[in-house]
Amino acid sequence: MTLVAVPIFVDTSADIADAHAAAAAAAAAGATLVEWRVDRLGDEDAADAAVRRLLAGSPLPAILTCRSVAEGGHAEDPARALALLAAATRAESPPRYVDLELTLTDHPAAAAVIDGVAASGEIGLLLSTHDFDGRPPDLLQRIERMTTHPHAAVVKVAWMARSLRDNLEAFDLLHARRTPTIALCMGPFGLPSRVLAGKFGGLITFASSAPGAESAPGQPTLADLERCGFERVGDATRVYGVLGWPIGHSRSPTLHNAVFRQMEWDGVYLPLPVPPEWEHFKATVGAWVDHPTLGFRGASVTLPHKTHLVRFVRERGGVVGPEASAIGAANTLVVGDDDAIACVNTDVPALRATLLAGMRTDTL
């Protein structure tokens, strides 16, 4: 089962009591891990004692992270950050995982972290790498370095997605993993990698306790995961969504996932942002339909892609429904278990039925 980690920032020792309360509330909301983000706590003179107190009162198993500025965090001094992590490995209540950035594994102070993890027998070393610009060109090399590290218990990769297609590579990385792995996409295109992590065996996904508390761009809240049906995702879960641009305003995911839950249907329905150009639609929908293990079984399609959908289905030799064919636009993509595709327009019959009901007649 994929664990859900809630990141909580602890900037000073005065924040610890509130941080413990926030973690307890997150546990009640479904979190199974807490990621203590102590990026700024290392600036305090008594930082080691503060971290021990933080860990001792943690209501959930913890990941301890002191994220560097270079990788999206706030820790400016790598030596101090590593010293804080090393001290935590000697705590009476150690974290479940210590996050060590790949770029810091060769730092002279990293040896104390790695030795402390090895000596504890209780802590897992989580090696991580992040890219906030896009998919790093050496992504596979980074993963290989982390996977083959003699002390790595978990490998984590996260990068800024440029399109929904990035999620497919994250899924493939999880499928090919040789050690427990976290593979996440950041930004507005990255939600599928977070919600569907359990379908592909991801060890952990991350979700904030509330809007504004995110530790990375595009990170959902615990409530978002619940609305998307995260807890029901398994390897056979069917994937659906609403395709459009923009799409953040759509209430369709909330509605459909509620119905799926009520019906006990093994499916999830996601917001799927696709930029307005035909080329984006063709490339993204084609990749999702063709992915061998995603189980993409269809989508609602809204503006500006209704005409694109008809063109897409025709070009791929699929079936275009009569209303969609007549007006050149469709709002529903259907993908069969045999990957055969079809599109229909449900707007036309719905409009016709509404008009007939309003006019109290059977024909127009």
Rank of each mutant, 00 (worst) to 15 (best):
I16W: 10
H20T: 05
A21Q: 11
A22D: 09
A27C: 11
W36P: 01
W36I: 07
R52W: 11
R53F: 03
A56G: 01
S58A: 07
P61I: 09
P61Y: 04
S68C: 00
E76S: 04
L85W: 07
L85D: 05
E92N: 10
P94V: 09
L102E: 03
T103I: 11
A111R: 15
A118F: 15
A119R: 15
D133H: 15
P137S: 11
R145W: 13
T147K: 09
H149S: 12
P150E: 12
A153Q: 13
A153T: 11
F171D: 05
H175D: 12
A176G: 03
T181L: 15
M186I: 05
S193Q: 06
G198P: 14
A216M: 00
P217V: 01
G229Y: 01
V242A: 00
G244T: 05
W245E: 05
P246L: 09
R251Y: 04
F260Q: 01
G267W: 02
P273R: 05
E277H: 12
K282E: 13
T284N: 07
R297K: 06
K306W: 05
R311E: 06
F312V: 03
F312Q: 02
G321D: 05
E323N: 02
S325P: 00
N331T: 00
V334K: 06
A340S: 13
C343E: 04
T346Y: 12
T354A: 14
